[in-house]
Amino acid sequence: MKHSSFFWFVLPSTLLMLAFIAFPIVSVVSQSFYSAHEQVVVQVKNCGPFGCTMETSVDQEATAAIREAEPLGKFAGLDIYTDRNHLAFGEVAAAWVNSDGLPDFGRSLMNLPFYKALGFTLTYTAIVTPLTILLGFFVAIAVNSVAKALKGPTIFFSLLPMIVTPLVGSLILFWMVDARGILGTGLQWLTDDPNLSVKASTGLMWIMLMVYGVWHAAPFAFVVFYAGLQTVNTDTLESAMVDGATRWERIRFVVVPHLLPLVTFVALIQLMDNFRVFEPIVSFQASAHATSLSYAIYNDLGGETRLLSSAAATSVLTIIGIAILLSPVLVRTWRDFDRK
């Protein structure tokens, strides 16, 4: 293809990418270096029948004028990144000095909002991603081996968790784990503890969120792997049967290597999705026990104070986190491409 033809061919998509991806990122990054202007406060003498007093009030006009003159806010450099709500360098350093060993340091770290959110986000991503891939793979293998007549209904039921709206799905589970729900009561019966409450326990709440995450995302992995299974070379499978391979060995030596590129794809998508975990925390009303980076951004933007710059800084840190998480897979894909 000629360079000029290529240029015109990619121009529309490049423009769209610039407008809808690059520009918002640049906007968020620049916003993260500015903090909101402080309100202009003036001392006003207020005289009444009982005498005069000096009162402090906000000079709305002066404040509006400053905000209009510098709509991004006051340049703060990296201050927002290093404040207590984000990387909290000062607090981390203090915790390091004052802590009694690593576990204590970890506990102190988890009291800082950013690290608390990051801790849950990373744990969620690290546990849900592989479990989703494994569950999706085994469901695909199972569905692929059921009788033809049953395949349609089985596929439909396997896809249900993905079809159900995340909010509704998580609300259903939320009610089920309630002390009066079937799962909550079941757990109380199993542990012989009538006071056991999933919602009151941080550990159980984390487990519940992750169980929901796997349940909700596994159908995506299942669909991708099921499609991949339809392209497994039948001759290779049959020659493995004749060679003496058991069912498990056929999966291990024929099916899994065939599906590996798809595992990379599903892993990439799931890493990105899980790192942005948000809906379950809202639906489970779990913010007291677990917050994620996305939840922190939502909290900053949705609160009364609308901490735009704080949300921007968390967003930038989230983007950096996703980039770090994906880098091994991307590097591997690039190497494979380069080898070809």
């Binding site: 070379n233 001759d235 290779t236 049959e238 020659s239 493995a240 049967m241 004749v242 060679d243 003496g244 391979a245 058991t246 030596f253 024929v254 290597p257 065939h258 590996l260």
Partner: peptide, 19 residues
């Protein structure tokens, strides 16, 4: 089962393990 018949088979499309 095929594995218990003590046979081996060569297929048209080879049936090799690509990995």
């Amino acid at each position: 089962e095929p594995k218990d018949r003590d046979i081996s088979m060569v297929f048209q499309s080879y049936g090799l393990y690509p990995n």
